[in-house]
């Protein structure tokens, strides 16, 4: 089994894994970082979104071996110690989550949306950019509101 090494949430990690191991399996099963979730098997739901070298990717369709030497950030690594990331804070303040299952992927995707579209990203752009993330609880209303608020506070 090949050894796959990368930096996850700022820490160097290494594991001997089957070559077909997906990034999501690597973080969930080998690193026991279970905040990243699996909600589907066709790369549609976005519960598994993490950041790979600063960009959002679906970890269910990324091979761990592709990430050799890469910087990966999962939901567990987004806050700065006890200080929540502004996007995490915005989701809490705006009731942007209910059951919490899609939330890690939503927040990771949301940070990426703001990184790409800026702090004044508008509602329509947010809705279109969320194409790859499904939520069954919130009707997206408060997720969109959270991302708008989070975008603003990320800039301040």
């Amino acid at each position: 089994m090949p050894t796959v090494s990368m930096t996850v949430n700022g820490q160097a990690v290494s594991a001997d894994v089957d070559a077909r191991t997906l990034l999501v399996e690597y973080v969930r099963e080998h690193l026991r970082l279970t905040g990243t979730h699996v909600g589907c098997d066709t790369s549609q739901c976005g519960a598994c979104v993490v950041h790979l070298n600063g960009r959002a990717v679906k970890s269910c369709t990324t091979l761990a071996a592709q990430c050799e030497g890469a910087e990966v950030t999962t939901i567990e690594g987004l806050a700065n110690g006890d200080d929540l990331h502004p996007m995490q804070e915005a989701f809490r303040e705006n009731h942007g989550l209910q059951c919490g299952f899609c939330t890690p992927g939503m927040i990771m995707a949301a940070v990426d949306i703001v990184n790409r579209h800026g702090n004044d990203v508008d509602e329509q752009t947010i809705r279109e950019e969320l194409e790859g993330n499904l939520c069954r609880c919130t009707g997206y209303h408060n997720i969109v509101k959270s991302i708008s608020a989070g975008a603003e506070s990320m800039g301040s």
């Binding site: 939901i75 995490q88 809490r92 989550l97 919490g100 939330t103």
Partner: peptide, 10 residues
């Protein structure tokens, strides 16, 4: 309950 869900601690 949000604290654990937004930090991956669910």
């Amino acid at each position: 309950e949000d604290k654990r869900f937004i930090t991956g601690g669910g």
